[in-house]
């Protein structure tokens, strides 16, 4: 895929995420939050899907303020300069056009909603705390690596989530009503408990 094609796809993703975030009451979204949200969408993707990761083109590295993808940054810069978004690259952005919104696969849209709805329960201000407590991100920070964060099937976040699910399966008599998305939601509930108790 050429750089231009990647950017076009990223533009559609970013516009859709911002539009769907508005539906949960986030009228504007900080550019840092967007980086973090796309990161979570990528790193958690394979827990619920067996197909190729739909966010494969995003490559994240560690920064003090969370994961950073150059593609997300470039897309935001493009969308701001073309006035499809209003705001600034270091602050909040909001929609100024409907171009590109929902011009992605149904599955991808659904997945974006899954993550946004989970995060929406706690509010935008808590997203950073979730990132800091993400096992894969934490591992990358500990190793002090400046290269790309591993988001493949062997990533630590998926290992922890699978173990979380296993504990439910081994404890409750019937887990058939708990979907994979629910496990992620319950896992965030658990993380949130850890954050507010400062464990």
């Amino acid at each position: 895929m050429s750089n231009k094609e990647e950017l076009m796809l990223a533009n559609a993703d970013i516009m859709t995420i911002i539009a769907h975030a508005k539906r949960i009451g986030w009228d504007s979204v900080s550019t840092n939050t967007l980086q973090r949200v796309v990161y979570l969408m990528k790193v958690l993707y394979s827990f619920c899907h067996s197909d190729e990761n739909e966010f494969v083109q995003y490559h994240f590295s560690v920064t003090v303020f969370g994961p950073y993808s150059d593609l997300v940054y470039k897309s935001l810069a493009f969308l701001l300069s073309s006035q499809r978004l209003l705001g600034d690259l270091d602050g909040e952005v909001r929609l100024n056009s409907s171009d590109g919104i929902d011009s992605i696969s149904e599955d991808k849209k659904k997945w974006m909603d899954v993550i946004l709805l989970i995060l929406g329960k706690y509010g935008e201000s808590k997203v950073f705390s979730f990132i800091v407590n993400d096992p894969q991100y934490d591992q990358a920070v500990k190793a002090n690596i400046s290269s790309e964060i591993n988001t493949d099937l062997e990533n630590d976040t998926l290992k922890v989530l699978n173990d979380f699910k296993k504990a439910f399966e081994e404890t409750l008599t019937d887990t058939s009503t708990i979907s994979e998305e629910e496990y992620i939601s319950l896992y965030f509930d658990y993380l949130f408990g850890q954050i507010i108790e400062k464990k």
Binding site: R23, I24, G25, W26, L117, I118, G120, K121, G123
Partner: peptide, 9 residues
């Protein structure tokens, strides 16, 4: 879930 988030916002 959407309403829960919207009310808080």
């Amino acid at each position: 879930q959407r309403l829960l988030s919207i009310l808080a916002e």
